[in-house]
Nucleic acid binder design. Structure first.
Ligand code: FES
Ligand code: FES
Lengths: 144, 144
DNA sequence: TATAAATAGGACAATTTTATCCTATTTAAT
DNA sequence: ATTAAATAGGATAAAATTGTCCTATTTATA
């Protein structure tokens, strides 16, 4: 469904959001531990998210990653997925035709656009804040 | 969503089904042309589908690929996807956790299983025959 | 029986994705 | 000022996926 980079990106952003709500900035090392991801690879993903203004990075000692409260509420999963995997999830043909096109549809087009659209809606309606709900209480998990 | 191999597999099977309904067996070369896929790579995919008894292959001159009428009606997309991409589509966690598990769910679990299940249902309810409807009349397409 | 057409399959190559390593830069704190 | 902790980013490596090439085998037909 999503690339590894994207999966790490969502999990990392969610963890950063959780800690930002508690008022603390988190280091790459801590993030990678908490989401069980390869450190250096996660760094690349976070660079990309930082360039896309999804997370804020602070360099130097006591630096780290954080997300403003406004952004925790406003940023949706759809933006993270788009920043990392591009728009293929939203616009690609289920059978890999070069363009998904209702005028010359592949045999699964009608059924596929329905599912793709449900996925899109889900991603567009799930904020980082939504993602953090239940994490603190251990009702949901970002690793294992 | 699906691997290239899987996309080619679905398109190839659909084309074979179409021609089998017309009573003719088709060669690898023709298949690759009609679904716009790399010939040798498609051969590998078809080998796999043949081993999984999704398509029948006939060696030798005037050989080729075909699917019995019974199978055209009975084989569902779900079986093709499973034969090539395995069960990750059906059971994998949307955020890449090692196991999707309702007891220790990731933050998108509830929403994701719904979409995954819709996709699964769609694949389980779409037969190769369904895929061929509209192809002959050009209402649907397997290439471009 | 010889030939040609077709799939099977092994070996390899190219590309993309995933992952690691090292150095540069920034910044707080000593 | 120095040091230590942190991100940025370039270079590289490893692994997985995608794609190609060549030979073996099978089989209909001339
Ligand atoms: S053309 Fe294939 S999903 Fe739209
Ligand atoms: S645990 Fe992530 S989708 Fe089920």
């Amino acid at each position: 469904m999503f690339s590894k980079a994207c999966e790490y990106g969502i999990r990392a952003s969610t963890y950063i959001a959780l800690k930002s709500l508690e008022g603390t900035r988190v280091s790459l090392k801590e993030i990678a531990e908490k989401i069980d991801s390869p450190v250096a690879f996660t760094a690349k993903v976070l660079q990309q998210l930082s360039k896309n203004h999804i997370v804020d990075s602070v360099k130097g000692a006591s630096g780290g990653f954080q997300i403003t409260k406004a952004n925790i509420n406003q940023i949706k999963l759809a933006q993270i997925v788009f920043a990392i995997d591009g728009n293929n999830v939203y616009e690609g043909c289920g059978l890999g035709l070069k363009k998904c096109n209702a005028n010359e549809p592949c045999p699964v087009h009608d059924k596929f656009v329905q599912i793709r659209s449900d996925l899109k809606n889900m991603l567009e309606n799930t904020s980082l804040y939504d993602m953090t709900i239940g994490l603190e209480e251990g009702l949901t998990s970002l690793r294992r």
